[in-house]
């Protein structure tokens, strides 16, 4: 019998109202498998505000509170404070927000929560745009992408700015633990969440969660695009523990980033020189990450 690496227990039932091939759906399912039933989840405005189903339906087997768009960090701070006041110590408090709710409108409340050292897990499920409202660009949208507010058109108005690096921002807070995961690598995701659960203080987890609807690709490509993201170095998997970097997956040789971009319709307008520029940046960022790992490993004993 092969060893099972994904827990069999389900805390997310059938009946969610996400789109076909939704990556955020897997993100929640694996998160709850990793953390178990003694978990309270706070969800701001995002796809997951809708996905549990309309009242009175709810596809999650854990207590769930809906909060305003920009307050996830504050909401989970309040839940944790109340549990502390009641002397309840065996419950994991999780904020589960999208990239817009994290990197844009919610960044202040998140920063405050991390700075206060709040013992919670903040999860940013990253589908790289405001998908719930209909594919508008966020600061987490990658350079080159089409969205409904970067509509390309005759003025070539695709997203011109690089994706905001939330991991760097979290590391600057001296957060005890931050990690990137991907729904295409569930064992890695579950391992990191379980590790986060055991660490005291604030934890930040960024889950790469493709959105076939917004990325203009077929729903059966969700996992394939996750694999290509890692194989090309476009979305590296790594963790930062007390400032020390550890890259979770290092492909022997990176595939051309074109392989990752060409299966997503949101990049199909890009001219050759733009593709080259993206390739250059991905290679550069990957090298920087390798250097960070090498440099910070030497700091372990400091």
């Amino acid at each position: 019998m092969p060893k099972k690496t994904i827990p069999e227990e389900e805390y997310m039932n059938t009946g969610h109202v996400g789109c076909l091939g939704c990556g955020a759906c897997h993100a929640m399912r694996y998160t709850l498998k990793a953390l178990g039933p003694k978990t309270i989840v706070s969800i701001p405005a995002c796809c997951w505000a809708v996905m549990p189903g309309p009242f009175p339906a709810k596809c999650l087997e854990v207590p769930l509170i809906n909060t305003a768009f920009e307050v996830t960090g504050a909401s989970i701070s309040g839940i944790k404070a109340a549990l502390d006041a009641k002397g309840i110590t065996d419950v994991t408090v999780v904020g589960f927000a999208g990239d817009g709710g994290t990197a844009d409108i919610g960044i202040q409340a998140l920063s405050g929560m991390v700075e206060r050292g709040t013992d919670v897990i903040y999860i940013m499920y990253d589908n790289e745009a405001y998908m719930n409202t209909g594919i508008q660009r966020s600061s987490s949208t990658p350079v080159g992408a089409w969205t409904t507010t970067t509509p390309v058109g005759t003025t070539k108005d695709w997203k011109k700015q690089p994706k905001k690096n939330m991991m760097d921002i979290m590391v600057a807070h001296k957060i005890p633990y931050a990690a990137t995961c991907s729904i295409g690598f569930p064992e890695d995701l579950i391992k990191k969440l379980r590790k986060a659960k055991e660490i005291r203080g604030p934890k930040f987890i960024q889950i790469y969660a493709p959105c076939p609807t917004g990325w203009r690709m077929q729903p059966d490509k969700t996992i394939e695009v996750c694999r290509l993201a890692i194989a090309t170095g476009a979305v590296p998997l790594y963790e930062v523990e007390n400032g020390v970097y550890n890259i979770s997956r290092k492909p022997a040789e990176l595939k051309p980033v074109k392989d990752y971009l060409k299966i997503q319709g949101r990049f199909r307008h890009l001219p050759e020189e733009e593709l080259e520029s993206i390739q250059k940046n991905v290679t550069r960022e990957w090298k920087i990450l390798l250097k960070k790992e090498e440099f910070t490993k030497g700091l372990v004993d400091l």
Binding site: V71, A74, S75, G78, I79, A82, A85, A109
Partner: peptide
């Protein structure tokens, strides 16, 4: 803004 948000969630937790 965060003060009120934190209290709403704390109150929902029974405090």
């Amino acid at each position: 803004h965060s003060a009120m948000a934190a209290l709403i969630s704390a109150s929902m937790t029974g405090a």
